[in-house]
Design a protein around this nucleic acid. Structure first.
Lengths: 179, 179
DNA sequence: CCGCTCATGTAACTGGTTACATGATTTA
DNA sequence: TAAATCATGTAACCAGTTACATGAGCGG
């Protein structure tokens, strides 16, 4: 059987964190998260949890109330083991490597613009970054109030990156002047 | 006709930057880049350039040398226009928003580990980040030597982010001690 | 009783990857 | 002359999204 993907492990982590929960509630969490690269669509989550169930990483209980199916998932020993292995060294290089940054990809081609338009791009980017900083600070605070120190720490990471990108834009503005 | 995707615009930008070039050379560039989220596979690039050609964003010249096809692409006026529009305000919120960070996704679930193992994770992550910092610094220097200030600036952005993630890990180590 | 949210699922689509086929040209 | 690289392409696959269908339960 193939290794679990990052999405599968992230879902597994969610199930672990919540205790018994439905596929729907995991889906909501993904959809609500501002940080999510995955949209958290039903078409991804439902088959994924079936898969985890079949392979023994989670167990499922059919809900007794009513006649319609209401399935709750719980992580198994094997699932917790897989989750812990994922969180243990060695950390794969790809996890630390730089990913897609739509501001960076644009920066490569800034020479295609006249100087004044380059400055406009940078200012617009700074504005958007400040906007994102506001949104994600609010999310960090929500986690903090909920008393979830690890999610708080995770969002803190997102804020670090956002501030770094903002500093990069300020530096860019300076450097563009004498180019 | 639908709007161009970010990948299409990135390829278009590459063609603009190189002047006349083959699909193969664009593919090599993507494959070589450490920053690329796209692998730069033939199966993606070749059809993509055909598409840009059909829609008038690039023009193609069949190579005269030999009897085998050797197609070079050049950006058109319409293509340059699209590229400039991409680089002009408003910057879409998604471009500034936070993306997938495989260290962050792991951080959410660090509570599943015993305290000593958490610290091991952070140290391993720091090690990988330092490794990536070395690799990307070298890439930045390559761009600098080539005299490409915008690509240099772009890689500078990647370095900013890598350093921010490293600082975040150091902070995490401190915070984990009294948790 | 109307609409909203909870809840489960599927079918069609999309866009990129993997793996392969093919052949010319260059280099050891 | 063999191996590597340049060069172009395609077919099968895969994972996630979009859009939809279905129905229960609850609040206004």
């Amino acid at each position: 059987m193939p290794a679990l993907t990052d999405l599968e492990l992230t879902v597994l982590g969610n199930v672990w964190k919540k205790g018994a929960c439905t596929a729907y509630s995991v889906m909501r969490e993904f959809a609500a998260s501002t940080s999510s690269y995955y949209r958290g669509s039903a078409g991804a989550i439902y088959p994924l949890l079936h898969r985890l169930d079949r392979r023994g990483y989670v167990s499922s209980q059919a809900g007794a109330q009513g006649r319609r199916p209401r399935r709750t998932y719980t992580i198994t020993r094997q699932g917790l083991q897989a989750l812990r292995r994922w969180l243990s060294p060695p950390v794969p290089a790809a996890a630390a490597g730089i990913t897609l940054d739509l501001l960076r990809t644009r920066t490569y081609f800034l020479a295609a613009l006249p100087p004044a338009a380059r400055a406009r791009f940078v200012r617009a980017a700074e504005k958007q970054l400040r906007e994102q900083l506001k949104i994600n600070t609010a999310e960090r605070d929500r986690y903090r109030r909920k008393g979830d120190p690890f999610s708080t720490l995770a969002m803190e990471g997102a804020l670090h990156i956002l501030r770094a990108r903002l500093a990069w834009m300020r530096e860019m503005r300076r450097r563009l002047r004498n180019l």
